[in-house]
Amino acid sequence: MLRRHGPGRALVIGLALAGVAVVLIRNGSSTYSLSVWSLAVVGAGLGMSLSLLVTYAGLPSLAQAAFYGTGGYAVGILAVKQGQDNLWLGLLLAAAVSGVLALVLGLVSLRTRGIYFQIITLSFTAMIWGLAVKWRELTGGDDGLVGILSPSIAPFKGYLVTPQTVFTVSALSLILICLVVRMVRNSAFGHVLVGIRDSESRMAALGYRTTAYRLGAFVISGVLAAIPGALLTYQLQFVSPAQLNFVVSIQALLMVVIGAGTLLGPAVAGIGVIWLQEILQRHTDHWLLVLGVIYIIVAMVNPPMLAQRLRQRWVVREPAMESAR
């Protein structure tokens, strides 16, 4: 974790992504494909937010949908009930509400480990989902909140309404999330998180307040999930309990699993997962079935393991490995 990646690789990746984005916005792409790209980029943000927790803190939470959906409901309620249409205010509220929720859930769930942690986070998602269904006056129940107006992006001109603006803002949010995850990974905080993931008892014996660090990671991850959640709601101009269904949590975990091994892997996997879903949806009514089969196959192939095997085959072994006795 101490190794520093020079600016070189990040710069190349960044420029390449910016290039793709410009091409997408400027020419060629239809409104349709641009709107799918926007969905994909938002999904990638969800995957990245969870990857912080899974990859560095070793916490395979199933509560990500709860924070994602809460972000969506926060801006939905703000727009529909308060008539407030400022994008930044919406994002701020979404982040704050999900952050508080993550703090509360973290305090409860981080006492447990492994399967118990997963059960608690999953139950929490189900609880928030139940709340969204039952609290009709606030959430619109099963029907959700419709007619959420596109927010203004003041101080910039216009509204989050044209496919180009939606895509640009979504892509920027993804970049921001990636930068935050990268900062955490390279920081002292991230280093301690990995230490705790490796050996909590040792880190505690060294004097680290392990639960506080885990809680910090949990809250950051929840806050990050709220941003794409809010943007999804603005994009669809609609929010419903489907956005905080536990299936969304599993989808996020899938992105992390597929993309494990590199910093941006989960984002790339996220874009892939959403596009795949979109394409299947267009071609068959049984898209959920096909998607399920594909996911099972992917999980069995275990992409990170595959990637590692390929690397071992083609990349020269590290000198440290050779001197192992």
């Binding site: 974790m1 008892s201 040792r202």
Partner: peptide, 9 residues
């Protein structure tokens, strides 16, 4: 009981 994914340093 060490941080097994890291180096000695």
């Amino acid at each position: 009981n060490l941080m097994h994914s890291m180096t000695v340093e």
